[in-house]
Nucleic acid binder design. Structure first.
Length: 638
RNA sequence: GGAGGCGUGGUGUAGUGGUUAACACACCGGUCUGUCACACCGGAGAUCGCGGGUUCAAUUCCCGUCGCCUCCGCCA
């Protein structure tokens, strides 16, 4: 997985380099300096071979008359052994070399002396005895350690500032290789199935939906702006109208929002659109692609991927991106909770809400303090409170112990039976008694209770190490709601985007009960991380009009903003749908990296800056003049 | 916009209201023919992020500010 050498490339040596360094060589004809091999691929079978190697000085171990040089290229490291008694010129030069200098070595591969082999090195059976050495470029001492044995984490700002050095580290190079391998496999997959890779504009039009746009001022039309694309959504739909039928693009997308460990202002999507397909066709294609491309980077995801409706994901896992590597589903205690003389339960149920619970096997060993911490987090997530009941050898503990004791026998039994059912989970995976378990209960509106418990569920997984090593869980979350209520604006917004097709059987509710309408929209989730989403698109004019009306978008406004798409649709639009996957997140998960930055060659810091180039930066006023732009100092930040 | 954490030689860390800020690695000089995170001897290197305050005295306590990281808001 490390390197991918192929044949060494022919590389001309500048005459001056030869001339400058020839003094360091013994006389005689200039040797052939064309690279013959890579450092990391030499083996015992190469014994006796005369090789020319290029690379960086990783380390020098100076024993006086004998000096060891570890030479590194992207394939690995090989030891070059310089003996003063055999090649005094090379020995003298090597002693003065600094790490990370670039050198060319010509020499002979030989077996190491018995007992001097290094089994921890791929090239540990052999070494290179140099006859000539060229210093192609001396290096300053790097600002942080580069080699494979670099200790500790280096300040990330420093790494980004010298990213070209950071990327020399084998683990970082491996991330670049991994990304390339994945993309290559994905491309091959799509190509074999008739997809065409087509580029769409980077300079495009700002649209009101979704995230804040990055704007690019127009010089030819001062006062007007292009926007960088948040996604090629409208263009790929136009390509369907154009009869392309199967489109794919590995495309950069831009969003001017705050950054996170898994979010950058520019990221790469694997963007797909298909005509004359059902939702099943899209899911099957993307799933097959993932299995194929992950195979190319050494992963064998368990298939077929699970399916789960949005409703079930929210109800049982309190999230639209459930982490299914472990159980611990949320239980709806329903009427069983009403039997306890505990007023908050009665109140929540009376108001049409519910009582929900996580029943945690072995959770009774959590300290009161830890449980209180979880309760605090639940409140931060909008729960009115979190009560608990721990099953111990001496009976029940916690705020619910007393109500349980005071309930009638029947009511108590019903309640405990409901908890036992919750303990087993939806798949019945964790059967057993309640002793030693911990029930965490939230009463209130169903979604708020689930969301709070969904958060607690992830906390518990961390605290109790519920995720088995090496477990992978993919899940398609389907049937997202078409709309979500926008509290601030007091209106319905499209949850995915307004071109998403509603379920046929929900069409009647579009204008009467928008919250009930399900969409042909789906997400792919890997280990609780959303990889991407997609949908079938509306291709019926009447449906599109009703959706616009549902989100309060008037005819005129719709014309103004999306007129070009609507007009295109009047000339014969095929049924179509697609999806987009976040390449950076996929690479992050495959690499086991903590942030998306680890798998991006030149990422931005959390404040959106690039410590390497200094972007963003002020520009000369003379650049602003033709754009009709003036910078106001002290302008309020957004 | 909000919350939290961090900021000490080149790097990673330790530490303290008081005289000379400690350690490891890296760096520089030296010894060494089998190392591979070589070993050993010696050396240099820090206005303790920046500004202000409290104090006889601040790297340490307080306030502000900047930068980095994480999370919430935002974002598919």
């Amino acid at each position: 997985m490390a390197g991918l050498p192929g044949e060494p490339l022919p590389l001309a040596r500048p005459r001056e380099v030869e001339a400058e360094t020839s003094a360091a060589r013994a006389g005689g004809p200039a040797p052939d300096w064309q690279r013959s091999d890579f450092c990391g691929t030499l083996r015992a079978a190469d014994e006796g071979k005369v090789v020319v190697l290029d690379g960086w000085v990783q380390r020098i171990r100076d024993h006086g008359q004998l000096v060891f040089l570890d030479l590194r290229d992207r394939t690995g490291v090989v030891q070059v052994t310089c003996d003063a008694s055999r090649t005094p010129e090379v020995h003298a030069v090597v002693r003065d070399l600094k790490p990370e200098s670039v050198v060319a070595v010509r020499g002979r591969v030989r077996r190491r002396a018995p007992g001097a082999e290094n089994p921890r090195m791929a090239t540990g059976e052999i070494e290179v005895e140099p006859e000539r050495l060229l210093v192609l470029a001396a290096a300053k001492t790097p600002p942080f350690p580069i080699g494979a044995h670099a200790p500790g984490e280096v300040d990330e700002r420093l790494r980004l500032r010298h990213r070209y050095l950071d990327l020399r580290r084998p683990e970082m190079f491996a991330h670049l290789v991994l990304r390339h391998r994945f993309v290559k496999a994905a491309r091959d997959f799509f190509d074999a199935r008739g997809f065409l890779e087509i580029e769409t504009p980077m300079l495009t039009r700002s649209t009101p939906e979704g995230a804040r746009d990055f704007l690019v001022p127009s010089r030819l039309e001062p006062g007007s702006f292009y926007a960088l694309p948040q996604s090629p959504q409208l263009f790929k739909q136009l390509l369907m109208v154009a009869g392309v039928e199967r489109y794919v693009q590995f495309v950069r997308c831009f969003r001017d929002e705050d950054l996170r460990a898994d979010r950058q202002p520019e990221h790469t999507q694997i963007d797909v659109e298909m005509s004359f397909v059902t939702q099943e066709d899209v899911l099957a294609t993307m799933e097959a692609m993932m299995i194929h491309a992950l195979g190319a980077v050494g992963r064998r995801p368990p298939g077929p991927f699970r399916r789960m409706s949005y409703r079930e994901a929210i109800d049982r896992y309190g999230s639209d991106k459930p982490d299914l590597r472990f159980g611990l589903a949320i239980a709806d205690l329903g009427p069983a909770a009403a039997g306890l003389p505990f007023p908050p339960f009665a109140k929540a149920l009376g108001e049409g809400g519910s009582v929900r619970a996580l029943v945690v096997p072995g959770g009774a060993r959590l300290s009161r303090r830890e449980i209180e911490g979880l309760a605090e987090e639940a409140r931060e997530r909008g729960a009115s409170g979190l009560v608990w009941l721990a099953g111990g050898p001496d009976g029940w503990r916690g705020p619910l112990a007393r109500p349980l004791a005071e309930a009638g026998d029947d009511a108590a039994a019903r309640f405990l039976a409901a908890l036992r059912e919750g303990l087993a989970g939806p798949d019945g995976e964790a059967a057993g008694g309640l002793e030693g378990s911990l029930a965490l209960l939230v009463a209130g509106p169903a979604e708020a209770a689930s969301a709070a418990l969904g958060h607690i569920r992830l906390r518990l997984a961390e605290r109790l190490s519920l995720v088995p090593d090496g477990r992978d869980a993919f899940v398609w979350v389907t049937d997202f709601p078409m709309f979500e209520w926008n509290e601030e604006e007091s209106r319905w917004d499209a949850k995915h985007h307004p071109f998403t097709a509603p379920h046929e059987e929900d069409l009647d509710a579009l204008l009467t009960d928008p919250g009930r309408v399900r969409a042909h929209a789906y997400d792919l989730v890997w280990n609780g991380v959303e990889l991407g989403s997609g949908s079938l698109r509306i291709h019926r004019r009447d449906v599109q009009e009703r959706v616009f009306r549902a989100i309060g978008l008037g005819d005129e406004e719709a014309r103004e903003k999306f007129g070009f798409l609507l007009e295109a649709f009047e000339y014969g639009v095929p049924p179509h749908g697609g999806m987009a996957l976040g390449l950076d997140r996929i690479a992050m998960l495959v690499a086991g990296a903590a942030t998306i930055r680890e798998v991006i060659a030149f990422p931005k810091s959390a404040s959106g800056a690039d410590p390497l180039t200094g972007a963003p930066a002020a520009v000369d006023p003379s650049q602003l003049l033709p754009l009709g732009i003036e910078v106001r100092r002290g302008a309020p930040k957004a």
